[in-house]
Write a protein that binds this DNA or RNA. Structure first.
Lengths: 152, 152
DNA sequence: CGAATTCATTTAACATGTTAAGTATCTCTC
DNA sequence: GAGAGATACTTAACATGTTAAATGAATTCG
């Protein structure tokens, strides 16, 4: 069997951890987790969105997002209001307090990203992201929760 | 600010998820999580190891590993015995039952990996892993839990 | 119209990630 | 050789990942 530590999943895991390790301390100082920060950024970029689309954008599963939104709302960092036409949907948006928090955190976050880019190289970073996108594309539609049924 | 969904952390997260989505159903059919599978593979490759080194090899934090080993031991998939010279250390190894389980799971797992390799391309896969390793290297020693202290 | 179905979101249950604290053992030093 | 410190591992507490089930609201279809 392939040497365990050289598998693709491990390479991806180690690389991502190396990157996230840079951001976590700064976020933590402001009481934010990686996921909470993703949600705030997504909301700031998009504006008001439904929960389902926010999940797609921030790449979080519904249950995780549901819990995090509850907490962020309790901290008044986001706002929620149910849609008038469809009572099932709720529109989520970042609050003024959330915007202010982002303004505090963003500079450090940007500086860290810049340092990572500097160390790894701008060109290599672009190449890497290109390859990661291609990898994702090449696997699209393979494990979409349909193929596994045949094995049951 | 940089378009959120194109950040390096997101690219890495999406790519890894695309890959792991392929493996999870098969592992799940055998009652294994991704992390439990990593541990079994690591043990099969290395033999008997201390918990701390296993954590390094399987890329898991101590507390996670501690819990998982407790469960795997209860399922008789691994074995543990405290070292004679140093009562603090315990040597972990895969059990016969664990080996048999691996023999059942491995073929499917290998087939999935082969399919991923085929779709993405052997050469590109090697290139990608090379770049991921370089990224990890270029960030080594940056966020080793020391630099954040200056900010406190 | 009304039951069945679909859809958006939440809750539940269990496993892991993450940081801090605890426990037991070992080592080192005076 | 006794106490301070270091080391290996575990527990605790809280946040998220993951799958299944529940809830409530809209839609479809007979």
């Amino acid at each position: 069997m392939r040497e365990f530590s050289r598998s693709l999943p491990m390479s991806l895991l180690r690389a991502r951890e190396a990157v996230m390790r840079q951001f976590r301390p700064s976020l933590r100082q402001h009481g934010l987790t990686e996921q909470q920060w993703r949600i705030l950024r997504a909301l700031a970029a998009i504006g008001a969105v439904e929960v389902t689309e926010l999940a797609r954008t921030a790449f979080l599963l519904g249950p995780s997002l549901s819990r995090i939104l509850r907490d962020l709302e309790a901290r008044h960092l986001i706002e929620r209001k149910t849609a008038k036409e469809d009572q099932r949907r709720s529109m989520v948006s970042i609050s003024e307090k959330g915007v202010k928090l982002m303004a505090v955190v963003a500079p450090t976050s940007e500086a860290i990203y810049a340092e990572i880019t500097r160390r790894f190289g701008t060109r290599k970073l672009a190449d890497l992201q290109e390859m990661l996108g291609e990898l994702e594309q090449s696997l699209a539609g393979l494990g979409s929760a349909d193929e596994a049924i045949a094995e049951e």
